[in-house]
Design a protein around this nucleic acid. Structure first.
Lengths: 355, 355
DNA sequence: ACACTTGCCGAAACCGGTTTCGTAGCGGAA
DNA sequence: TTCCGCTACGAAACCGGTTTCGGCAAGTGT
């Protein structure tokens, strides 16, 4: 009952201009204004234009939560980051965020993020954000083979997109980097330089990427016709110290590897430490290739040869997929696999002559 | 679960339980339920308890945007990150986010973030988020002496909290690390080790922290009774390469400094490069002290002596301040100054004997 | 016994949008 | 002319909460 408000506008003490202000200003019903702005077909082109002009002349912006109450959509992508322990992917969150945010902003969506330090907390946050409808759907980074988040979101019917693959992908939208291909390529590269004993440092257990990178390593060996030696698989390592320890074991073998392939850059940094402690020079005595493309790995001595990932692009793509899924597109049509690119440093070289 | 909802409820296909479902289940009016849950005084303790129990038994969670339409508050803190160029503070955003998010979650608030790559974009995003009411207020990191964001938000009356100080602090809530004290302390530390010619590498121009750290450096000199030599102020540097170039100029002086004090860790890394190129050994030939506490600076050789900042705590504190301000507390009572802590590495030592 | 508080809750307005429904006015076909 | 259908809009219901208002019943004072 928008009653006797003499002068249009200037109703609330606050400067907000509501859709009623706009409607009165135009001499239209608020419903008409709403339909005009939202592209309904039963509005004449003339009226639509008039409304649009008045809208951005008066600086009208609908309150997103006011629309949400009827539409059920808040135009927000959700992201719950789990950063336990000594996570080496910290450097990437900035770029990832930039990508997600950029893609969201382009569609006039926003980004709601939360951080957790355990699986339980992650699930609790996902629940809360979904229940309170702070986000329309979620991006799930760092997928595991058996991921509790997808199970949860599947139950509640909340849209989500995976950064990485998982065991059961039915009904899932996902984006991933084909790191298994990169690993195989790395092996081939090393073999071409004369290496035959190539150690491998796996990533964190349970994560899909770890399994895939190991598979890539194995595929690379097979492709090169090199027999697999289980002795050359080190312990998992995602932190520098762990990498040093894990690789140390390999280097102390009676017949040590001449090259190390790491699943993550942090482990590669540890590999440098392990080599240095044993008097081995990285790049000549010991070749190292890794995966991540962390900026600081350029500053190792020698600079690390590693596969870089366009994290920002991943964020953009994922946000886009999620938005489209929320708009009704079939998740299974929203999938993509990208490639990592090799960044040549000085850490790999020809195999040294046998002693 | 509690699904056996054939009687009351079961209205929507969706499984959401609304306040009406809850009211019917209890035989109360929905207004009564709302007041009971929101702590109004005109509800008997018995009823309040009954409502609360039923609420979390049925798993009722109000839609935040539905409440927002009446209350005007969405319970969300806003954060617009501006990451232009080669920003060295990327590693910190993860921890900062973790802090902000943790404090927000503790109050049942959420966090809305956006990223921009220019001042104009930052302002546009702030405007949009404020207009659409995606956030109740904003945290403004990396304040400048004359900050366009505070001007903008002041005009529109949007609550905000500064991470860092600015020129005109009237009506502002802020949190900052007293880096000027750290710088002065660093100078004193170096002087105590016999250094008398101490170079200084300023941070990015226009930012408050740069001015304050320079002031700290100068105060340190004064405190030690050392005359200020303008020649020892290098060019601004926030990236490794720039740091190397800037410090190179100082090292090539006829009477070069024996110690370098950097405003940021990235510049310190560049200082290492500059020293190495000139055959100087960091820690003995040239002492280096810096500020930031970037994790990777521990891996420089020798490990960097630097002042570390508890970025996560900063995020927590700022989120708290913003929430309290949104709840009506006077911004000028919401201020705090914290200290950085010195992390001794191997990059500083006694001054070498004069040639 | 009567007026007067309180305590406690129901009813309804309200927030700012979206969506449905009904209809006046107009043009074209019979 | 009359009937029909379509266009373009007004009016009102609606979304899910919050907040105001009014009133019943029990308790209090005198």
């Amino acid at each position: 009952m928008q009653n006797a408000r003499e002068a249009p506008g200037n109703k609330h003490a606050t400067g907000r201009v509501t859709i009623i202000d706009l409607a009165e200003h135009l001499g239209l019903a608020k419903g008409t204004v709403s339909r005009a702005l939202n592209g309904y077909p039963d509005i004449s082109d003339g009226t639509r234009l008039r409304v649009r002009n008045a809208a951005d002349q008066l600086g009208y912006r609908p309150l997103s939560h006011a629309q949400a109450i009827r539409t059920g959509r808040v135009r927000s992508v959700g992201l719950v980051l789990q950063m336990n322990e000594h996570d080496g992917h910290r450097p990437f969150v900035a770029d990832f965020l930039a990508g997600v945010s950029a893609a969201a902003s382009a569609e006039d969506w926003s980004l709601t993020v939360a951080t957790a330090s355990s699986d339980a907390e992650t699930l609790k946050l996902l629940d809360r954000l979904a229940q309170e409808k702070k986000a329309d759907g979620f991006i799930l980074p760092r997928t595991r083979l058996d991921d509790p988040r997808v199970n949860r979101l599947r139950e509640t019917g909340t849209p989500f997109v995976l950064y990485g693959r998982t065991d059961d992908l039915t009904g899932c939208a996902w984006y991933d980097i084909e790191s298994e291909a990169a690993m195989a390529q790395a092996v081939a590269h090393l073999v071409a330089q004369g290496h035959t004993r190539i150690g491998f440092v796996p990533g964190a257990e349970g994560y899909t990427y770890s399994k895939l990178r190991l598979e890539g390593y194995l595929a690379g060996l097979t492709g090169a016709g090199i027999a697999f030696d289980p002795e050359l698989i080190a312990a998992s390592a995602v932190a520098r110290e762990d990498g040093a320890a894990a690789v140390g074991v390999l280097l102390d073998l009676p017949n040590p590897p001449t090259a190390i392939l790491c699943s993550v850059d942090a482990a590669a940094a540890g590999t440098y430490d392990a080599a240095r402690r044993r008097g081995l020079k990285v790049g000549s005595d010991l070749s190292v290739i890794s995966y991540d493309g962390a900026p600081e790995s350029q500053y190792l001595d020698p600079p690390l040869s590693t596969f870089t990932v366009d994290v920002r692009a991943a964020g953009e793509r994922l946000a886009n997929m999620l938005i489209r899924q929320c708009r009704g597109e079939d998740p299974e049509t929203l999938r993509a696999l990208a490639q990592a690119t090799f960044r040549k440093g000085g850490s790999d070289g020809p195999a040294p002559h046998a002693a």
